[in-house]
């Protein structure tokens, strides 16, 4: 067993874990944050995407021990209390999900891609950036629409907050 400490969704956590434990197992099984999903064993599907120190990572591809001292944000930590993050709201508004299993990873990837590519990111770029996230339900059509709308809403959110 080995000790690990990190900050998850703003909360400090410490645990003794099997050194083979992946970050996604640590989140799901030790912290019971089950919003981060596991859809494959080969880092292809992206259902497990979380933010590690502000950047999207596949939580199935990193050991929990490698995250010592890091800040991790999962889907559960994205909303501001009861107010959905603009990207979460956009997925709902544009029907960007059906069974919901890929959705947490999609949303975490989407937020990261807007952070990197800007709020006026075009459709082609969105489709390309989703290379590491698989969805079997939606045909991606409404996911792409949702991300474009979420990107615009993310740009407006800070302005709205400032105005308030």
């Amino acid at each position: 067993m080995a000790a690990v400490s990190m900050t998850v969704n703003g909360r400090s956590v410490t645990a003794d874990i099997d050194p083979r434990t992946l970050l996604v197992q640590f989140l799901r099984e030790d912290l019971r944050l089950t919003g981060t999903h596991v859809g494959c064993d080969t880092s292809q599907c992206g259902a497990c995407v979380v933010h590690l120190d502000g950047k999207a990572v596949k939580a199935c591809t990193i050991l929990a021990l490698q995250c010592e001292g890091a800040h991790v944000t999962t889907i559960e930590g994205l909303a501001n209390g009861t107010e959905l993050h603009p990207m979460q709201a956009a997925f709902r508004e544009h029907h960007g999900l059906q069974c919901g299993f890929c959705t947490p990873g999609m949303i975490m990837t989407a937020v990261d891609l807007v952070n990197r590519k800007g709020s006026d990111v075009d459709e082609h770029t969105i489709r390309h950036e989703l290379e590491g996230n698989l969805c079997r339900c939606t045909g991606y059509h409404n996911i792409v629409k949702a991300i474009a709308a979420g990107a615009r809403a993310m740009a407006q959110a800070p302005l709205r907050q400032a105005a308030e």
């Binding site: 799901r28 089950t34 889907i75 559960e76 997925f91 709902r92 999900l97 919901g100």
Partner: peptide, 19 residues
């Protein structure tokens, strides 16, 4: 109509068997 089930799915509070 926007889906009633989406609130839990976009916030990671759906409950699948492995959860």
């Amino acid at each position: 109509v926007r889906r009633k089930e989406d609130q839990r799915f976009v916030t990671g509070t759906g409950r699948y068997v492995d959860d």
